[in-house]
Design a protein around this nucleic acid. Structure first.
Length: 310
DNA sequence: ATGGACACCTGTGGGC
DNA sequence: TGCCCACAGGTGTCCA
């Protein structure tokens, strides 16, 4: 999937184009893309139709569009997760069909112009859903939404199905101390911990491998065996890699990953480990190794990233 | 708690 | 050309 930077690119685009727009019609072309919706397809269509989108908010790899609230109803949001291959495209109605479109949300913007927000997804691991928002546990904003709307009151709420996702490193309320303490309690390998969205969110396989390469840590190094200094260094690399990729518009290094206009971003962040199996490590020259790990791949330099006895 | 397997899906590219 | 296998950036659940 898109990891945090790709999702943030989509969020920023949606904030710009669809906030304030009203839903005029909803087309479900493949109901499997509503997997995460708690009720049935009819409920999704009925609830969403005629609503106005308030903004675009994100936490980790989840994004959501708070909807206007009707009296005597809880605050609702349209939640999107892109899974491994999802895209959200905003098109004019006459724009050519996008292959693999699963859901079309027809919109009328405040200026009267019509748009279609198209949810495109090859593998259908992603989905749209509508869910209730609840107050955040700590009263801090529920997600990162860019400076422009960070003070809005509804940011003190988070959708139910995102509540178990921890804050990401780009969240203004991200608590580094709390993460360092959690590391000390975990004997799992550090990469497993980095990918645990309940510990900190937004990191996927690419940025985990890249951050660990930068910090020279083996993916299976028990989290609690890493010194505080070294762990802080790792988190700094994580934050920096994510932030750089956000600026670059996501690491869209193939056709799959696109912004809301369907453009693949320039791949201006060069990778050092991910997908570079067999190529020389840019630090020491040793061939990058790919291990089968957790039903996927882990890329690392066997010389720079040795497993240390603990 | 923790690690592993697997389910959910489609598409692409390499080897034979 | 076709066929089979490996592989793809995620998440959730069930089981030892």
């Amino acid at each position: 999937m898109p990891e945090l930077p790709e999702v943030e690119t989509v969020r920023a685009g949606l904030q710009e184009t669809v906030s304030g727009a009203k839903v005029t019609r909803v087309e479900i072309l493949d109901s499997r893309s509503l997997r995460r919706h708690p009720a049935n397809v009819g409920d999704f269509v009925e609830t969403l139709t005629s609503r106005t989108i308030q903004a675009a908010v994100r936490r980790g790899k989840f994004l959501w569009l708070p909807l206007n609230q009707k009296k005597s109803e809880p605050q609702l949001a349209l939640i999107g997760h892109l899974g491994m291959s999802g895209q959200i495209l905003v098109r004019t109605p006459d724009y050519e069909e996008d292959p693999l479109t699963r859901i079309i949300v027809h919109l009328k913007a405040q200026d009267g112009l019509k748009y279609q927000m198209r949810f495109v997804d090859q593998r259908i691991f992603g989905s749209l859903a509508i869910d209730v928002m609840e107050d955040t546990e700590d009263g801090n904003p529920g997600g990162f939404s860019g400076e422009e709307i960070i003070n809005s009151t509804w940011l003190n709420k988070i959708p139910n199905q995102v509540a178990h996702i921890s804050r990401d490193p780009l969240d203004p309320a991200f608590n580094e101390e709390a993460i360092l303490k959690l590391f000390k309690k975990k004997q799992s390998g550090i990469k497993r911990v980095l990918l645990d969205q309940g510990v900190l969110s937004g990191i996927g396989n690419i940025y985990a491998d890249e951050s660990l390469w930068l910090a020279k840590i083996h993916y299976d190094q028990p989290a609690n065996s890493i010194s505080r200094i070294k762990a802080k260094e790792l988190l700094a690399h994580v934050t920096q890699v994510l932030a750089k990729a956000v600026v670059a518009g996501g690491t869209s290094f193939d056709e799959q990953y696109k912004n809301i206009n369907g453009e693949s971003g320039y791949f201006s962040i060069s990778l050092n480990a991910y997908g570079l199996t067999g190529l020389p490590c840019k630090r020491c020259g040793r061939a990058i190794q790919r291990d089968n790990w957790m039903n996927r791949g882990s890329h690392f330099c066997p010389k720079c990233q040795k497993l240390k006895a603990s």
